[in-house]
């Protein structure tokens, strides 16, 4: 695990000098956008030992909506997988090509405590892994296993994204089940329904969320 973290660190150190250093006029700053998205439905086909397929549901932070545009999307969801619009495709069935500058890292903290982006940690998807690792306990969720089989977002994990056009957003995933039930049942409550809070920094080059 440690080796893996080191690996991420190294790759980001080598490839990650892409943050913008231009300073924009402070007077012209747009307000930071805070929003909650409920029940973003991102089903998948296959799985359970079979190859996974199905369209990723793409999301754009600046519009705050899902999109079918092949280029202007920031992140995309399918089942428990979240991909970014940056890097290389893992080449699963129906997986979109990456065309943007998207990247991500997972910070420990609360939405309020993650105020500054550490751009050295940003990682892009690769042909061997999504930047947000799949599997319980590796990325944004825990998988309870039998008998409940619940997928629960890990508390204190804030996903910090670089958007396809080089801006930043932070996301806290709250629920994977329809209407965020207080005691979800993996068999009765519809899975693949994302509810998340996000904060979007619409100003280029600003690495803080103020």
């Amino acid at each position: 695990m440690k080796n893996f973290k080191l690996f991420i660190l190294l790759t980001t150190a080598i490839t990650g000098f892409n943050s913008c250093s231009e300073e924009e006029d402070a007077i012209q700053l747009l307000p930071v956008q805070t929003k909650q998205i409920t029940n973003l439905h991102a089903p998948q086909s296959g799985g359970m030992g079979q190859p996974v397929s199905g369209d990723f549901v793409k999301f754009n932070f600046s519009t705050g909506e899902t999109t079918t545009n092949d280029k202007e999307w920031d992140i995309a969801f399918r089942g428990t997988s979240i991909i970014v619009n940056g890097g290389t495709s893992l080449e699963t069935i129906d997986e979109p090509n990456r065309t943007g500058k998207g990247a991500v890292y997972i910070a420990s903290g609360t939405m309020a405590s993650v105020t500054e982006i550490d751009t050295t940690l940003l990682t892009q998807d690769s042909e061997s892994n999504y930047a947000i690792l799949t599997g319980g306990g590796n990325g944004w969720y825990d998988y309870a296993g039998p008998p409940t089989h619940l997928i629960s977002p890990i508390a204190g994990k804030i996903l910090v994204f670089k958007t396809h056009d080089g801006l930043y957003a932070k996301v806290e995933i709250l629920s994977y089940y329809k209407d965020s039930p207080s005691q979800p049942d993996a068999f009765k409550d519809g899975p693949n329904y994302y509810t998340f809070n996000y904060v979007y920094q619409p100003n280029k080059g600003i690495v803080i969320f103020e």
């Binding site: 609360t110 309020a112 629960s152 508390a155 204190g156 994990k157 709250l174 629920s175 809070n197």
Partner: peptide
């Protein structure tokens, strides 16, 4: 302080 929790599933995490 590495552990966070939520009061209910749709509320934000706290330390």
């Amino acid at each position: 302080g590495n552990i966070y929790a939520r009061l209910n599933p749709s509320s934000p995490s706290f330390q």
